[in-house]
Design a protein around this nucleic acid. Structure first.
Lengths: 192, 192
DNA sequence: TGAACAAGCGGAACGCTGTCCCGTTTGACG
DNA sequence: CGTCAAACGGGACAGCGTTCCGCTTGTTCA
């Protein structure tokens, strides 16, 4: 949880630490303004550093994106079990949780697009999202399947990729309602 | 239908006509090999022409893509009414037609990705696909809705965008089965 | 047939991108 | 306060789409 004061994973120089933080702040701001695919130079300029400094701290863009959104992904992951415990039914909990996931994706300019499955060069981002969220989704899915509310032959990874893909372009185009389509997909899970 | 011998829409020079055809052949080959986002220079090289020649014939990449796939899109559009006439039920026809559409998208490297709704600069491609296929889908959807097989509050455009998005990355990743997910989405249309 | 003209051409040039490199600065520590 | 490696900045490079310009070539008309 606490990123700032963990016990000296790497004894970095003070200026390096400061720059990393500036970079995270600047990246967050630029991502909001211009999307997660904003030019590296823009982020560097916003942070008041050179372009190389970005690559020094975050070797790939995926690393930077992960660092910026880590907290929110954690929050989403932790919401899963909570919803399952509180909700009226596993299926309802699944629906709610997926809504959270969709909300997260559509409010981050272009995040869903870089998360898509055919995207080489973002392996780390892909892996992080999947490692963190697929187990949560699996648990919800299993619970709903055991309760007999949905069919049992759909994997969490499969579902999440579908949801992620449906969220692509949900920002930008106000006529495209990703939530509705995701709801349709989730409705398709129901037992016949 | 006949593109070659329509009554002199533009009395072009013979070499221009030849180049346009080379370009179409070359583009088709390169699209298969490297996807629809292959570098312009590659396509030009494959056709044995300069880069400017591409832009002269096809001002935007979307125009080139449309020209290459026009026949197949037409075939897909024409299959709609046929399926509706032959099929056991409107819902079955809808499912079959969407399968055709999905097959078309996933077999064209990266086509689904450029068709996505947030993609600026491909307006012509977007418009062509939608103009040609949305009416067909609408008819299938309406028929199924009237037969009481599916809910009536889903628009063709909405559905097709969802299907298109689900097909993104279906090539490249053998673990991602767009067909299954699309089937799930279509299953979600059923009346409750 | 052949000369004149414009349609059409190829590739160099430009701007923008991500990425890498290298000479310089600066924080940390003895 | 001197030393030195960690860290830095921005320029250099390569790959892309797009545009421009001087040259080539098909066509036409006498």
């Amino acid at each position: 949880m606490n990123d700032e004061d963990r016990p000296a994973a790497k004894p970095k120089r003070a200026d390096a630490r400061r720059n990393e933080e500036s970079l995270l702040d600047a990246a967050a701001a630029v991502f909001v303004a211009s999307g997660v695919e904003a030019p590296v130079r823009d982020i560097a300029a916003a942070a008041g550093v050179g372009t190389a400094t970005i690559y020094r701290h975050f070797p790939t863009r995926a690393d930077l994106i992960i660092a910026v959104y880590r907290h929110q992904v954690e929050a989403c992951a932790e919401a899963g079990p909570a919803l399952l415990a509180d909700g009226p039914s596993p299926y309802a909990a699944l629906g709610r949780w997926i809504d959270l996931f969709v909300d997260f994706l559509v409010t981050k300019h272009g995040l869903a697009a870089v998360l898509r499955s055919d995207n080489a060069g973002f392996d780390a981002l892909h892996a992080y999202f999947l490692d963190r969220l697929v187990p949560v989704c699996t648990r919800l899915l299993d619970a709903a399947a055991e309760a007999g509310e949905i069919r049992a032959d759909v994997e969490a990874l499969e579902l999440m990729r579908g949801v992620g893909n449906l969220c692509i372009g949900a920002d930008r185009d106000p006529h495209y309602d990703a939530r509705r389509l995701v709801a349709l997909l989730v409705a398709g899970l129901r037992r016949a």
